[in-house]
């Protein structure tokens, strides 16, 4: 009797151990990749950012000189400002338009599948293609401006990419156009996930539909919004290809972004040290977020422990 009980006790323990072994085996490649690719490479990047490496990385330590040059360079400062403007505007506009489109799709319209495909279609295109198409549309001699002028409105001007002050907004429109369909799809899924009973209850209470969308449905789909937000945010940090295709960073350097600066210095300008310094600066805000989140989690945990006592 006791033996049976022991065996019964031992079995799940053994199974658990085997399970954890499998888990370790399965995650080892990922761990190696994460440590090897991310941690070690990041450490090397930071290290080389303090050297005067040109084409070949070297170990000539020169302190923070590369960072001094970086922050003394107009182009880098404009790049940082641009990514902030680009990021905040395209995040807000993307989410607002994405939600409006999702609400529109939610009206039991006919041909919903067709519309959904149309709205999602831009995302299937690479940002380079998107950028080129928008560049042509914006081109004063080929695009919208010349088309409208040929219809008779000869004073019509619409060419955002040729002026320093407007070029960035031209790029933002292209980027939002590319990404808004995905936001719509995610938010639409979120909307469909809201319980039908809630709609009925809201109707019974006489709450207007728009208020239901804004104040009842929206707060209930936090998960979908967070997903859409994070997806867009990653797109913002690595924004590169659409700028290359649309403006090449110009006119002047009004549409430069940090990624462009990094890549150009690592490659054609053969100044690895400077490129690595810029890359390290790009990493800084991400690291800050991770540290802040870590602190936040730790505090929440310690508070939970204290609460349990």
């Amino acid at each position: 009797m006791t033996e049976v009980a022991l065996a019964a006790q031992a079995q799940p323990r053994r199974r658990r151990r085997r399970g954890s072994l499998q888990a370790i085996l399965a995650t080892t490649p990922m761990i190696i990749a994460a440590v090897g690719v991310f941690v070690i490479c990041i450490l090397f990047s930071i290290f080389w950012s303090m050297t005067n490496s040109k084409l070949f990385p070297n170990f000539n330590f020169i302190g923070l000189t590369q960072y001094q040059r970086l922050w003394g360079t107009d182009r880098w400062i404009v790049s940082v400002q641009n990514v902030l403007v680009f990021g905040s505007i395209s995040l807000i506009v993307g989410l607002v338009f994405g939600y409006l489109l999702a609400v529109f799709m939610d009206q039991r319209i006919r041909q919903e599948d067709l519309f959904r495909s149309i709205f999602l279609y831009p995302f299937a295109m690479s940002l380079v293609v998107t950028g080129l198409v928008w560049q042509w549309m914006y081109d004063p001699n080929l695009g919208i401006q010349s088309a409208v002028r040929s219809l008779g409105w000869t004073g019509f001007t619409f060419a955002p990419l040729i002026h320093e002050s407007t070029a960035l907004y031209g790029v933002i429109v292209g980027g939002v156009w590319n990404g808004v369909g995905v936001t719509m799809a995610i938010l639409l899924a979120g909307l469909r996930g809201v319980d039908g009973e809630i709609w009925k209850a809201a109707k019974v209470d006489g709450i207007p539909t728009w208020r239901t969308y804004l104040f009842i449905a929206l707060p209930m789909m936090r998960g979908a919004i967070a997903t859409a937000f994070v997806l867009q945010l990653t797109g913002v940090v690595r924004v590169f290809d659409i700028v290359v295709a649309m403006t090449g960073g110009g006119p002047g350097f009004s549409t430069q972004v940090p990624a462009l600066y990094v890549i150009q210095h690592l490659t054609d300008r053969v100044n690895v040290g400077q490129g690595m310094a810029a890359a390290t600066m790009m990493l800084a805000p991400v690291m800050l977020l991770i540290v802040l989140r870590g602190l936040f989690v730790m505090r929440a945990e310690s508070r939970a422990k204290r609460g349990a006592k």
Partner: peptide, 19 residues
Amino acid sequence: LSNDTTGQMNDLAAKFWAD
């Protein structure tokens, strides 16, 4: 001039031209 210096001069020329 190294590519790095040429690149900086290109940046300056483009900036001056556009701005």
